[in-house]
């Protein structure tokens, strides 16, 4: 009796997370195994005919091995954008938090404006064209950095507020130059919030659909999310291939999570205690 009273909440939590996370994933896996006909029913059933391997081969070889190109593009895009984001956001957050000037108000306003005002597509494309960055991967990397920078800066600034200023002062007295203070003293202390940043932003950027769709046109420029449109159209959708594709592009982030699981959890909780 007391066992039930003590544990019922955990059981409910496990059940809820099972329904919310595991069942949809099982549905994806099952549908990815089916043939076209059974998958068109879109029901939760056991595949009559297993053809997961055929589906995988189909998906990868579609449109001249497009998925492989897409994986390379998406990896470059995610790694490069997140690296730049982390470095720049930490720098901005540090300076903004430590140095009080009369510009702070304006800078804060600009950061919030970046969060609140939706960017317009056509003028952005004109700007990119003028700079010769349109339909180039590094152009899109800059776009992703620009769109996601404000949120990262807010995370960093809040965290830096918890690091005592005495640390910087001690380092300066010991003869550290400004860049040393930042990269050798502050940056390592920011690890918890950096992990949060990396996780949140790489998931967003890896899953980004609309920005690559508009800013990175052209064959050979696809990112993984755009390959979904190979199997889904307005009037005719191949659900078995669509779900196989979803499965394939869900796996890399999943592996990353399994690998870094401990660090991510440690990072997030450390941030929570300090913050």
């Amino acid at each position: 009796m007391s066992l039930i009273r003590r544990h019922w909440l955990s059981v409910v939590a496990i059940l809820v997370s099972f329904v919310v996370f595991v069942i949809p994933f099982i549905f994806i896996v099952l549908t990815a195994m089916k043939d076209k006909r059974q998958s068109a029913l879109l029901d939760f059933s056991w595949p009559e005919k297993f053809q997961l391997w055929e589906n995988i081969v189909d998906v990868i070889t579609t449109r001249n091995w497009q998925l492989l190109t897409a994986f390379i593009n998406s990896t470059i895009l995610t790694v490069a954008s997140v690296t730049l984001l982390v470095v720049f956001a930490a720098m901005v957050g540090f300076v903004l938090q430590r140095r009080r000037t009369r510009w702070n108000g304006l800078i804060n306003f600009l950061i919030l404006a970046g969060l609140m005002i939706p960017p317009a597509i056509v003028p952005t494309i004109w700007l990119l064209q003028a700079m010769g960055l349109f339909a180039k991967l590094h152009g899109l990397i800059l776009i992703e950095v620009a769109y996601h920078l404000p949120f990262s800066i807010l995370l960093y600034r809040a965290f830096i507020a918890t690091i005592p200023k005495d640390l910087d002062e001690a380092a300066i007295i010991d003869g550290a130059r400004p860049l040393d203070v930042f990269f050798r003293i502050i940056m390592p202390l920011l690890w918890p919030v950096t992990v949060t940043n990396i996780v949140v932003q790489s998931v967003t950027i890896f899953n980004d659909f609309t920005n690559p769709l508009y800013y990175l046109p052209g064959r050979g420029n696809e990112t993984v999310q755009l390959t979904l449109y190979n199997f889904q159209s307005q009037f005719n959708t191949s659900y078995h291939l669509l779900f196989t594709n979803i499965l394939l592009i869900t796996i890399p982030p999943l592996i990353v999570f399994l690998f870094f699981n401990r660090q991510i959890v440690a990072g997030v909780t450390a941030g929570a205690v300090k913050g």
């Binding site: 597509i121 056509v122 494309i125 004109w126 064209q129 349109f134 339909a135 769709l213 508009y214 046109p217």
Partner: peptide
């Protein structure tokens, strides 16, 4: 949207 965007930007 794609067609209109591309026509408007000349690409």
């Amino acid at each position: 949207n794609i067609v209109k965007t591309r026509l408007a930007t000349g690409v």
